[in-house]
Amino acid sequence: MKLSYVREGGLFFQVSETEMEVGDLPADLQTLVRKVYENSDDYRPREKNVNLRDGYQYRLEIREGRKKVNLTFGDTTLPDGFQPLIQYLQEKAINDH
């Protein structure tokens, strides 16, 4: 299972991205990602905040075989419990760079 992460936006033009095997994540984050993959509709934001200015947009893609799950969040629509995952992926994106 593969996970792709892109963070765009912010006060100035910047894009951070990374990709990794879900199996290489810490155990608690693996559990979260697998849960999101299985129940993606439960995590999908119901609405986009069209008035968000300078906020980040986070895009996650989880894929295994032919099944692909895409989710997009903003700073104000990030689900509870996602902060450690985003922080981990952001640090990895910086190190990759």
Binding site: N51, L52, D54
Partner: peptide, 16 residues
């Protein structure tokens, strides 16, 4: 807001 969050934003209602 957030951990080491290097940003600021307006979200339609408030500043963060």
């Amino acid at each position: 807001f957030g951990k080491n969050y290097a940003n600021a934003f307006w979200d339609g209602d408030e500043m963060t």
